[in-house]
Nucleic acid binder design. Sequence first.
DNA 1: GCCCATTTGTCCGTATGTATA
DNA 2: TTATACATACGGACAAATGGG
Lengths: 144, 144
Amino acid sequence: MIDFSSDRPVHWQLADIIGADIAAGRVKPGQVLLSETRLMQQWELGRVAVRQALGVLRGEGLVDTVKCEGSYVRRQAPLDRVAVQGPVEVTVRMPSPEERKDLNIPEGVPMFVIKEPRKRSRTLSADRTVLVWAGEDRVASEEH
Amino acid sequence: MIDFSSDRPVHWQLADIIGADIAAGRVKPGQVLLSETRLMQQWELGRVAVRQALGVLRGEGLVDTVKCEGSYVRRQAPLDRVAVQGPVEVTVRMPSPEERKDLNIPEGVPMFVIKEPRKRSRTLSADRTVLVWAGEDRVASEEH
DNA sequence: GCCCATTTGTCCGTATGTATA
DNA sequence: TTATACATACGGACAAATGGG
């Protein structure tokens, strides 16, 4: 499966393979992937390449690596629908490590920054949130 | 500056240091950072630690690494103000490598997914875009 | 055009610490 | 206690692209 003569780096190839497995549902959300060592053996790669591949998948938000346990396929968190009422300006960026900790945002997940006039910005983890311009006078955040 | 006896990993410490330099403007947008080798010498770290630190900064969208040149402090792209009209649903996620390529999105930058009723989703690089709900019937994207 | 130093990208191997089962 | 597994580091090596002489 891995083509060592390809000009596509092997850790990208491995990330492609695992990502395709996830997309196809061959490994399901919440399920743990093979360990680094198993992946090294199965694909005949070094540890660095395997870790780089997992790093790519974390960066894409597809998996979540837990120390001393393994890398899990990320569960699709139930979405909070957050309604906003204009005029609003919305930007998005990656959180700093501190913001990740404060807002409980996993690695590879961006962050909403919502600026309403005369208010200070609201920040929301983007993997749990769908932003809705309702046009109605409901601004509540529907917690599930 | 780097505390090897700290329980905070050295590559995080280095990312903190460089990130603080960027935030304070001691290195300016468009400017190139010291090379990996220089950073290794200056901070007495191995290459892996230096690369991990740069990887952290890329993941935060602070720097952009160009092969055979160096890591540059990312220029703040001039923002396109994109006006939307309700009802609209906005989600955000990290692009896949293919989408990054297609939409010309740098590493560490998330992507808007804008779903308007009866239309197919629009995707926009989030580092160039500020989303505005104006409440008016103007849906144009004001290119600068 | 060519050489050469620089710089990052891509790999390998090895080692230690630490949390989990 | 033992085995497993990941996190953090070190070292080395070669390839590929860039830019200056």
